[in-house]
Amino acid sequence: MQQKYLKNAGLIALITILSMIPPLSTDLYMPALPEMTAYFHTTSTLMSFTMTVFFIFMAIGILILGPMSDKYGRKPVLIASISISLIFSAACAFAPNILLLILARGASAFGAGGMVAISTALIRDSYEGKAMSKVLSVTQAFMLIAPMLAPVLGALILEVADWKMTFIVLAALTGVSLAGAFLLEETLPVKERTQSSTLQSILGLRKVAKNPNFTSLLLVGAIIAAPFMAYLALASYIYIDGFGVSETTFSMYFALNAAASILGPVMYMRFGAGSVKKAINAGIIVSIISAVLILTVGDVAPIIFLLSYILYSVVTSYFRPLISDLLLSATKTDVGAASSVMNFGFTVIGSIGMVVGSLGWSSYTGGLGITMLIFISITILVWLFVLKAKSIKFDWK
């Protein structure tokens, strides 16, 4: 389907913004958490729950709104999703108490879930082969960079305004994506939409999840990338509390790692997967090296920690478009449902990685390294099972 108003460049820009908004929603207000805790006269635990609620309801939105787009089309469900996210993101800025803030965060997250699922479905609807690989690489790069740069942007906002402005800025960015959604030409023709009821469409997720090829690849990609979420939760503590650097210096290290993360999607866009088996094997080996370096010398100096972790950042940022490309290429029908299962898997398993990384480790750096080794070990077990399972048929080259 040709895009009359957006053209190809506009469509890619829209998909990129849709991919960036959800991670921005979770991390943009991170620097304001202490200020918000005092404003609402609540505890840090309850304030942190606003982030947990976001992940829970975003996962629900992914599961429900993705399949709905298979039935009703991408454009109307996308417009509804963005509108919900926009309205309730703005509502967060005017929440009079912590309870209403949590409710508004949950509602905005539900809409964000639709944005995540449908942005991926738009790629599968609109592109094939190498073109799809390139678009996936671009959007995945920005989706990885967004949560890393969001705290930096949030800190800059707090220099000129209070915490409420972070949610107003978020609502404004969401408004940009809404304008793009109105210009979007529908990518799923009526004849290709599912004819089952909405409930049956949602229950159809089981059909996708029961596909051994799909779920095995998803598990490999999601499990090895899970410690990335642990890094987001621990980075400020590692640099500021552990190494004693300033907030400004921390932002510089954070940004350097974000810049390095671009290499993964760029490498995938330039060279492709090659041998999938060799790529995954190499990724696992480099991840192990990174984890061992963090555990042994990672706490010596911030620059050494940065260089040790960058190896893993590049691997995970390469794996995301690789796994997404393989999964979407193998999906011919129920693309919205497949997109939902894929993004749900990455979200939930990533959240588990965040929880494990945030446990009461004696050292923040050591906790991150151990978390990485735990998930890498599980990845190896799953990968060995995938290679030996006769029920899983895939050309690993």
Rank of each mutant, 00 (worst) to 15 (best):
M372W: 00
G336L: 06
A230G: 01
F214G: 13
F49Q: 15
A90L: 10
G264C: 10
S216Q: 04
L101R: 03
L173K: 07
M51F: 08
G367K: 04
F49G: 11
G360D: 13
M115N: 10
L234N: 11
I294T: 11
I323C: 09
G73I: 00
A131Y: 00
L184C: 00
P212V: 05
I374K: 04
S362M: 15
T379E: 03
E35A: 15
M68G: 10
V190Q: 03
M68E: 05
R206K: 15
N8C: 07
A260W: 07
F182N: 12
M252F: 13
I352Y: 05
L234S: 13
L170E: 04
A91C: 06
I98W: 03
A95H: 05
I56D: 05
M143I: 11
Y253N: 08
I224G: 05
S85I: 02
I310A: 14
K388S: 15
S324Q: 11
M229H: 11
A32C: 04
T174V: 06
A117E: 10
L328W: 07
S329T: 14
S85L: 09
M148R: 09
L219S: 03
G336P: 01
M229V: 14
I380Q: 05
A90Y: 07
T347Q: 15
I310Q: 09
V169K: 09
L328T: 12
P76Q: 08
F394I: 12
M148Y: 04
K397V: 14
I378A: 10
P147Y: 02
F55L: 15
K75M: 12
A233C: 05
Y127N: 07
M20S: 03
R193P: 00
K130R: 14
V245I: 06
I17Y: 02
M58E: 07
F305C: 07
A146F: 04
A291V: 11
G175W: 01
A230S: 08
A279S: 15
D241W: 08
A337T: 12
S317Y: 08
Y312F: 12
S358I: 02
S19Y: 03
A121N: 01
G298V: 09
M252N: 10
P321H: 05
M20W: 05
V276H: 06
L153F: 15
I352R: 02
S358F: 02
V169A: 09
L18H: 08
I289F: 12
A181V: 01
F55K: 14
I118K: 05
K207Y: 09
V335W: 06
G175S: 07
S119W: 01
V315P: 05
P227T: 07
D162T: 10
I82L: 06
F167H: 13
S89I: 02
T16S: 04
S339L: 09
S85A: 14
I87L: 12
F88W: 03
S246W: 02
T45D: 01
A260L: 12
S236N: 13
V286E: 06
F271D: 07
G204E: 08
A259G: 14
L205D: 09
I145K: 11
K207S: 15
F55M: 15
